[in-house]
Computed example of a mutant assay.
Amino acid sequence: MTDTLHDRTETLRELLERQFGEHTDQLTELTLQSRQRDHGGHDPDTLRRLIEAAQQGIADTARALKRMSDGDYGVCEGCGQDIPTPRLEILPSARYCVPCQHRS
């Protein structure tokens, strides 16, 4: 049985929602660590970078979910062509196909 586009989109939506939850949990934990005297064992610069990465992950994932609900998900913002499904399976928040990603 082959997957339909709807099935793949639903699978990718579930993946994005799971990633959103993971990034949110990570940000919560890092924020708590930042309030500890020892910063949870991280030096302040590393902790700041980890927090920024978690925030970026939340933002990227939220934008991908918004594109999905708007019907623009999987379309390259550079060239307007469909982003190949294997790329979306690896990086579900991808905004660009590989050639356009390399150009930016």
Rank of each mutant, 00 (worst) to 15 (best):
M1S: 14
M1Q: 14
M1W: 10
T2W: 11
T2S: 13
D3F: 15
D3P: 03
D3E: 15
H6P: 07
R8T: 15
T9V: 12
T9Y: 13
E10Q: 13
L12Q: 00
E14H: 10
L16R: 01
F20Y: 13
G21E: 12
G21L: 12
G21M: 10
G21R: 14
E22M: 10
E22W: 11
H23E: 07
T24N: 09
D25E: 14
D25Q: 12
D25R: 13
D25Y: 11
Q26Y: 07
Q26H: 10
T28M: 09
E29P: 02
L30G: 02
L32R: 10
Q33H: 13
R35C: 07
Q36S: 14
Q36G: 14
Q36I: 05
H39V: 06
G40T: 00
G41I: 06
P44S: 09
P44L: 04
D45C: 05
R48T: 07
R48Y: 06
R49V: 07
R49L: 12
R49H: 12
E52M: 09
Q55D: 10
Q56Y: 11
G57T: 06
G57P: 01
I58T: 03
A59P: 05
D60Q: 13
T61S: 00
A62C: 06
A62I: 09
R63N: 11
R63M: 09
L65S: 04
L65N: 02
L65M: 08
R67F: 03
M68G: 04
S69M: 10
D70H: 08
Y73H: 03
Y73F: 15
G74L: 01
G74P: 00
V75S: 06
E77F: 00
G78Y: 01
G80A: 08
G80W: 01
Q81F: 06
D82Y: 08
D82P: 14
I83G: 01
P84A: 07
P86G: 06
R87A: 04
R87K: 09
R87F: 05
L88I: 02
L88G: 00
L88S: 02
E89T: 05
E89C: 04
E89M: 05
I90M: 11
P92T: 05
S93R: 03
A94M: 00
R95Q: 14
R95Y: 04
R95L: 08
Y96L: 15
C97L: 02
P99S: 07
Q101W: 00
Q101Y: 03
Q101M: 05
R103E: 13
